[in-house]
């Protein structure tokens, strides 16, 4: 059973030409699918449709073995598929790092004590304990990125949806992020412009063009690696 199955997705923003026109995608456990495409091709839109923040005008979204239509169907999807936003400032809104990470678990009904336990275990796993009581808006860009990942991992998702995770990261922080992501067992959908990053993590690639997801042509040079 695939984790996600999008078929024939259509979507358009008001007063603009349709952005998705029959996109299909299947995500299986253990896969790390990279999605590429030019600016405004609809990559972020696709991720938002997957967790129900946007509703497609046509086509079906199935997640974790069930068809999802209504807002209520997606509550469960949002817990099991963690979306990491492009801009960390959109995601980190609590005053301190610990509170931000605890926000998700507390919403899922965890008690204070167990939320604190989750905060500590996630931060320890990502080696970020030193940021625990920092004020979120005073973190550096790299720290913010890793903390947004921690806030999502705290909900123990089965799938990670990453929207341009290397945006505005320097080489050192990017290497750190690759290392962290590579060690995670979750299936992932990675939207990224960075070929190096895709090559390090992806198991396969899809290209979003003219509203449709296609398998890119195999590389012409036989020494080039696939994703």
């Amino acid at each position: 059973m695939p984790l996600f199955e999008l078929s024939d997705i259509h979507f358009g923003y008001p007063h603009r030409p349709p952005i998705l026109a029959g996109a299909d995608m299947v995500l299986d456990a253990g896969e790390r699918v990279c999605v590429t495409g030019h600016n405004g091709a609809g990559k972020s839109t696709l991720l938002r449709i997957m967790v129900g923040l946007l509703r497609p005008t046509g086509g079906t979204v199935a997640a974790f073995g069930q068809s999802r239509r209504e807002e209520a169907d997606f509550h469960d999807v949002r817990r099991r598929a963690g979306l990491v936003f492009q801009d960390p400032d959109d995601q980190l809104f609590c005053p301190t790092v610990a509170e931000d990470i605890a926000f998700g678990p507390l919403n899922l009904g965890a008690s204070r004590a167990s939320a604190i336990e989750i905060v500590d275990s996630v931060l320890t796993r990502l080696d970020l304990m030193h940021l625990r009581d920092r004020v979120t808006h005073r973190l550096s860009g790299g720290e913010k990125r890793l903390v947004t990942l921690a806030t999502v991992l705290a909900m123990e998702p089965d799938v990670l949806l990453l929207d341009e995770p290397t945006n505005a990261l320097d080489e050192e922080n990017e290497a750190r992020l690759v290392e962290v992501l590579d060690a995670l067992p979750q299936a992932m959908v990675i939207v990224s412009h960075d070929p190096h990053f895709r090559r390090r993590l992806g198991t396969r690639s899809l290209r979003l063009k003219e509203g449709i997801l296609t398998q890119p042509a195999p590389p012409k040079c036989r020494n080039a690696s696939v994703p």
Binding site: R48, V51, L53, H75, R78, R79, G82, L83, F85, D87, D89, D90, Q91, F93, C94, T96, A98, E99, A102, F103, G104, L106, N107, L108, R112, A115, I116, T151, V152, M155
Partner: peptide
Amino acid sequence: RSERIMDAMKCRGFTGHIPLMK
């Protein structure tokens, strides 16, 4: 931005109550 923040909060199961831990 406020709409994106709202989306991010919804993704983490926001139900209208923000817990403060301190």
